[in-house]
Each structure stands twice: as C-alpha cells, then as structure tokens.
Simulated assay, not measured.
Amino acid sequence: MLPTVTTELKRDAGAMPYGHINEVLTRLKQHGEGLFRMDFHVDKGNTKVPLPGIRMVVRSDDADYPIKIADDGAFKLPLLPLPEAKTADLATNVPKGQLALRGTPELTTQPEQLDLATVRRIMRVARTLREELLPFYLRWLFPRMQGVRICSDTPTWELEWRENGQLMGLPLPAANEREPTTKKGDPSRPCTLLTGQENWPETARLLPPAATKLSIKF
C-alpha cells in the first residue's frame, strides 16, 4: 500500500473574492433565462506550474469544495448560498502569482437552434443583466454584448424562413471577426455576426455549416 500524501492548500489572497464570482453565477442562474453560462479555465500560457500538479478547492468557513480540472484546463465552480459565499475563497497548492485563471461568458444555444428571435432575446437579456441586475463593480465580468458571433470552417451560413407560403433563403456575409478561441498568431476561421437589428423576420433561422460554433461578441 502506498503511503498517504497530503498537500497543503492555501487561500489565494491574490484571487478575486469568491463572493463576487458567486454573485455573477447566481444572477445568471436567476435572470439569464438559461441563455448564458460561465466557462472557467486555467490559462496554461500564463500558469507557471504543470497542469496535472494543480490542486484547487473553494474553501468557505463551512466546507471545502474540491475542483476537478480537465486535461484542457477547464473546470466548474460551485454555486454557494450567498451567506456562505461571503466567507469563501479559492485555495490552491500553487505559489502566489504562478496560477492564472479566466472565466468567460458563453451561450448555451446550439447553432442549429439559433434564429433571429433567439438572437434578439439573447441581446435583451444580456442588456438587462448588465445594466440593471449586476452591480457596477461586477459588470466587467459580463461586458456589454454587441452580437452573436458565428464561426465555422466554411463561410456558407444562411438564414431560412417562410414568407407568404414561400421558402426564403438569405446568405450571410463574412464579417471582420476573429474567433475568440483562435491561438495568437494563427488565422481565424471565417465568422459572421448577428446583432438582432437585422431587418428580417424573427422566424429566420440559421442553417449552420458543419463545425459551427457560436460565441458572444463583447
């Protein structure tokens, strides 16, 4: 039998107060109408320790919540009751200044589910969340949204709807947009953009090419 190994985890004084992160997660759950989520990753390019060696928990005065980090650096954070979240912090085994984390708001809508009605709903809810429901000190975590970015391997996006019994189709032009997941220095896949201001019916739905991914333009 191998000996038990224990690793001391210390609260990261340099990290954002967990109560702030928890408040954003709470507002998204309560008022985001299921349209948004927060994706969290270890920023491997700016982290100075190997990913497999990182141990992390959310530590409150009541409990420790272990965080499982995937091979690509992705992880999920727990949603805590607001009183408990006020006492919580991230605790890790990584020396201060050597661990970089990032959280990104993402859409839950799949490309084949997207139509203009959904785009307009996304824009409306995002505006309400940021301008009315999030306190000013948290708005930088949910920047002002400018549209739904659509990226794919080939630029053959099209909107389709019925008008007076006739099936209508409209190709979408490529936009000067860069896919957020593109590595620095690499060319981006082709992208287009829908803002909800387009003069087409709400029933106009996206016909996405293969491997299409949606993202938020901030």
Rank of each mutant, 00 (worst) to 15 (best):
Q110G: 11
L129T: 04
S60P: 11
N93G: 00
D61L: 12
L35A: 07
R127F: 13
P81V: 02
L114F: 14
H41V: 10
V58W: 10
R37H: 11
T154P: 00
K48G: 14
T118E: 07
P81S: 04
Q113M: 12
S152C: 09
R37W: 01
P81G: 02
L80I: 09
L134T: 14
P52K: 03
K68Y: 09
T118F: 04
N46W: 05
G147H: 07
L133G: 04
R139K: 05
P105K: 06
R127G: 04
Q113R: 07
I122C: 03
S60C: 10
P135K: 12
D89F: 07
E84P: 02
G103I: 09
V49Q: 02
R149H: 04
L35V: 08
T108A: 00
L99P: 07
D71E: 14
K68I: 14
F40Y: 09
E132R: 11
V49I: 08
G73D: 08
T128E: 10
L35Y: 07
W140M: 01
A117M: 13
R102H: 15
L133V: 08
D61M: 08
P111R: 04
L79P: 05
D64G: 04
R127L: 05
N93C: 04
W140T: 15
A88R: 13
P66A: 07
E132Q: 12
Y137C: 01
P95V: 11
I150T: 00
I54D: 04
F75M: 10
L133M: 12
P143Q: 08
G97L: 15
E84W: 00
L79A: 09
L99D: 15
L82A: 10
V58N: 07
V125A: 01
E106L: 03
P111F: 08
L77E: 00
H41W: 14
R149K: 01
D64S: 15
Y137L: 10
A91G: 11
E33T: 01
P52T: 05
L77I: 09
F142S: 00
R55F: 14
R120M: 07
L116V: 02
E131N: 01
L79F: 08
D43Y: 00
D62K: 11
T47D: 13
V42P: 10
D64E: 15
L99V: 03
R121P: 01
A117Q: 07
G34Y: 08
K76H: 03
L107C: 00
G103C: 03
V148E: 03
G103Y: 01
W140P: 00
D89Y: 13
L116T: 06
L99T: 08
V94Q: 06
L80A: 08
G97N: 10
L77P: 03
Q110S: 09
G34R: 08
Q110K: 15
L99M: 11
G103T: 13
L116F: 11
P143V: 12
R120T: 09
M56W: 06
Q146Y: 15
I122R: 09
R59T: 10
L51E: 03
L141Y: 09
M38I: 14
V148L: 13
E106V: 15
V58R: 12
V125C: 02
M145D: 02
R59M: 12
I67Y: 06
T128G: 02
I54K: 03
P52A: 02
D39F: 06
Y65G: 00
D61R: 15
